[in-house]
Design a protein around this nucleic acid. Structure first.
Lengths: 166, 166
DNA sequence: GATAATAGTTATAAATTTGTAACCATTAAT
DNA sequence: ATTAATGGTTACAAATTTATAACTATTATC
């Protein structure tokens, strides 16, 4: 069990070091070209991935306090990128989902992200890229899994987008 | 070459989705227990990893404008966690590095990060954890590499800490 | 049916981050 | 010897994020 502990330390070390780099690539590298704040971008990303989220679900995904989620969503609604949806059985619950316009817009944002990443990986050779892809896939798989169990019923619609579908 | 493009898209998709989750684990999960802002935490992390950074080096690592780096460093100096160091050959350059107190303090912060991660990975079994570790290691390796090539001479001291050494 | 819990909003203040412009000191280039 | 470029700071305004408290509407519990 000692061994396992060392492994978690190592994971923490490696992943924490990578946070600002990913931020640079996916947030800062894209932000200037849209008029969207980082958290707004992440909200769209979460909605794209999960298809449908409650207000508290969004808050948990971004770890943002609920009142601020309201503000984020209001802003996105003002731009007609997302819409509110009432739950049939529980009238307290409001789902948020991308509008067609929002989907279109986020598709473009994803292109910007890809370009930003491509620029960063320019000098990385094919084989390393392949291995990087596998690693990224795996990390996303695990972290999405633990992320979901931590929020009760994040995407209550049932199915999350597992794959990219640009 | 078509294939390579798809791979980059996939990497972008997976890594971008993971950004808010990592933020939750390593930044938000730790912040409350320290009185440090996210960027201040990341500054310490970068210094821990690189040992020594110039002001612009810090700015590039966090992608933060230079004037704000001054503010961040000033704050850390006020808490005696980092210190300025002059370059022998170029008197414009100022290196920042952790003080012993700062190292001690960041060691504690790393413990908090590990605990936060451990809590998230509670339900993940041993084998997955092992594979996760390998993936995290690889991603850090590649991204650190491209990160460094993008900033001319980030850690001009020469040697970066490659391994965890808590 | 009264009470407690949940989902979301409104309002507000404070902290943090972002973005500029102008500036000093030092080094590089011509 | 000027002039240009680099590394860093100061000053300031704006945008974004964080943190609370109080509140409404609805559902769950006893």
């Amino acid at each position: 069990m000692e061994n396992l502990d060392i492994e978690i330390k190592s994971i923490a070390d490696n992943l924490s070091h990578v946070v600002p780099i990913l931020g640079r690539i996916f947030i800062k590298g894209v932000r200037a070209k849209t008029n969207l704040s980082p958290q707004t971008l992440q909200t769209l990303g979460a909605l794209w991935h999960h298809g449908k989220l409650t207000m508290t679900g969004i808050g948990q995904h971004l770890s943002v306090p609920k009142p601020h989620v309201t503000a984020l969503v209001d802003k996105l609604i003002a731009e007609e990128m997302v819409e509110r949806l009432n739950d049939e059985h529980d009238r307290r619950i409001i789902y948020i989902q991308l509008t067609p316009k929002g989907q279109e817009r986020f598709r473009e944002i994803k292109l910007l992200m890809v370009e930003s990443l491509r620029a960063s990986l320019l000098l990385v050779d094919k084989e390393k890229l392949h291995k990087l892809n596998e690693s990224a896939q795996y990390i996303n798989e695990i972290l999405t899994e633990v992320g979901n169990t931590m929020m009760q019923n994040c995407c209550s619609s049932g199915e999350c987008k597992k794959e990219m579908d640009v």
